[in-house]
Design a protein around this nucleic acid. Structure first.
Lengths: 329, 329
DNA sequence: CTGAAAGCGCTTACAG
DNA sequence: CTGAAAGCGCTTACAG
């Protein structure tokens, strides 16, 4: 009934602890017949090695830390799914750290390291100087997930935000629209800066004036702000860094009697569930958030395996696509 | 540069390892001057005890497992926030387990136990017989979060789903509506059964005929189904177990030219961000999901502290309220 | 109030 | 291919 120990398995199988351990960690080093016997008993007794002891002895925990910012969108849930599926495949387990308070970043980081994970998946898009410094002393690989590191020392997995914004803007220009507004977040996120750059590039190439607005992420603040914006002439197209902002804007426009997409076309970013639940349904650039998590975890296992210190970290770009729905013509 | 060990701290402070350990775990047992000296050095060196070693030696890991089902709504993110805030306060760290595949439930459970957590927060609303059995042998406290255990042996934290559905239904009856539809999920969730019970009770008390529909959680399937339902006479009020279903239904109704709330009133459950991003905005019963997570973690720490095996586990009910918005009169 | 010592449950060189 | 033994970094009775 009580959790079996490696000792019990060894006893029952008539071998030493070392052999049981080998069966689990280096099965190829054990004679097949011995291995099978041990395996059978392990199964019978439902033996699971104690993760703490294992971690302590091997200095590898087969555990990975996920560090997410507090104010993360609901979509992290999906990303974590992607991470977890990949983690299961490679035999890793997840430890979750939420970066609530920038002031406690140091402390959090200390905990992450003390937890002796084998690798770290970082979702923080923005990072204080201090964290950046702490990051340097991390004894395990760190990978940015759907976020862009400012230093070249870390790898990342995300979509090409700049290109995606550039292309969608260009597409709308090609369709003959000249008045295209870009709505970003007041709070600075590196990924949103990239989107902005893409938009600006497309507009400048076409010699069109840019129209850039920054707004809050908070719905009720947005609504006031957006209502103000609508006092002025409406753009033909509005591109938002987030679905939720796009929808909020669209709802206000519709209530004011503007017709979407006839008079005003709206494009979001991410393709959250909101996009399908809006009326009209939202066209957006889809960020394959599950895929990003999945790929990130897979790449992290590579990084954790590498004995040779470091090759240049890779920046993996995951494919994205545009989902055309009712909010565009 | 390298992580300091307890050994280094002891050396630098001129005390034994035992004393350093005591400073961390039972500070009251150490003379103040000694304690302060040790504390200072710990800080200087940025010492963090190795979590694995600590867990192994003390048989307590100050780690809690969160077990969530794969198909969990995005709102788990918020619940986990609540859990984490509480966990930080009590010095616990989080380990995340996602129950992807019912067939692997046994294995998952094995991992949970092997990870030697001190307690388990279970978000699985439904549970196979097998899990129920495994649950019995869990050496640590288990608590259901926003889910209802079928056995009386486990505590839980959620809102009174039955009462909330009963009250909102009754409220609409009192306002003079007789034709009230209830839309649940095809998939059986205990919490949704409770909502159904509450609805039925209110309708029966008022001698009104019930009108119950079960639908998928998938948006595109819902849409077909809902479109069908609208062939028939529309109810005056429709109550949905989920915001997203409510909004999906509402959008279809609006597109068909029905006026919300004039002809059709819609009520959701949960108060996700969707509710504020719909047009018209959705009235719903708010499930204080953050609060539920927060309270659950707090209660779990109590359970973990208790040396005396078990008193009767508590079922904590968190307050909820109804958020009246535009989808009701 | 403090230290020496055993032990938590594993893994991994090192021999054989 | 296998076993005996050391060691991973802590905690906690047990003495004093």
């Amino acid at each position: 009934m009580n959790q079996a120990k490696i000792y019990d398995i060894a006893g029952a199988a008539g071998v030493s602890l070392a052999t049981v351990s080998r069966v689990l960690n280096h099965p190829e080093k054990v004679k097949e017949s011995t291995r099978n016997k041990v395996l059978r008993i392990i199964k019978e007794k439902g033996y699971k090695p104690n993760a703490n002891a294992r971690g302590l002895a091997s200095r590898r925990s087969t555990t990975v830390a996920i560090v997410v910012p507090r104010i993360s969108q609901a979509s992290v849930a999906e990303m974590i799914q992607g991470i977890d599926d990949s983690a299961k495949k490679f035999g890793y387990t997840l430890r979750l750290f939420i970066n609530s308070n920038p002031k406690q970043e140091q402390e959090l980081w200390g905990e992450v390291i003390a937890s002796s994970v084998d690798g770290i998946l970082l979702m923080n898009d923005e990072m204080t100087q201090e964290t950046a410094k702490l990051l340097q002393y991390t004894p395990v690989p760190v990978l940015f997930v759907n976020a862009i590191p400012k230093s070249d020392k870390y790898g990342s997995v995300c979509i090409d935000y700049q290109e995606s914004a550039y292309k969608i803007t260009k597409k709308m220009i090609e369709r003959g629209y000249k008045s295209i507004m870009f709505v970003g977040t007041e709070h600075k996120y590196t990924v949103n800066d990239y989107k902005l750059n893409g938009y600006v590039k497309a507009m400048e190439e076409a010699h069109l004036p840019t129209n850039i607005v920054f707004s809050s992420g908070d719905v009720s603040i947005n609504e006031k702000h957006f209502t103000q914006i609508m006092e002025n002439k409406l753009p033909e197209v509005a591109l938002f860094v987030r679905d939720s902002m796009a929808i909020s804007f669209m709802n206000i426009a519709v209530k004011k009697g503007h017709r979407v997409p006839e008079e005003l076309q709206i494009i979001g970013f991410q393709n959250t569930k909101y996009a399908e639940l809006s009326n009209p349904k939202l066209t957006c650039v889809e960020t394959p958030i599950y895929e990003i998590g999945n790929r990130a975890m897979a790449y992290l296992t590579e990084l954790m395996r590498e004995t040779n210190a470091q090759e240049k970290p890779k920046h993996i770009l995951v494919d994205y696509k545009v989902i055309w729905r009712e909010s565009t013509k």
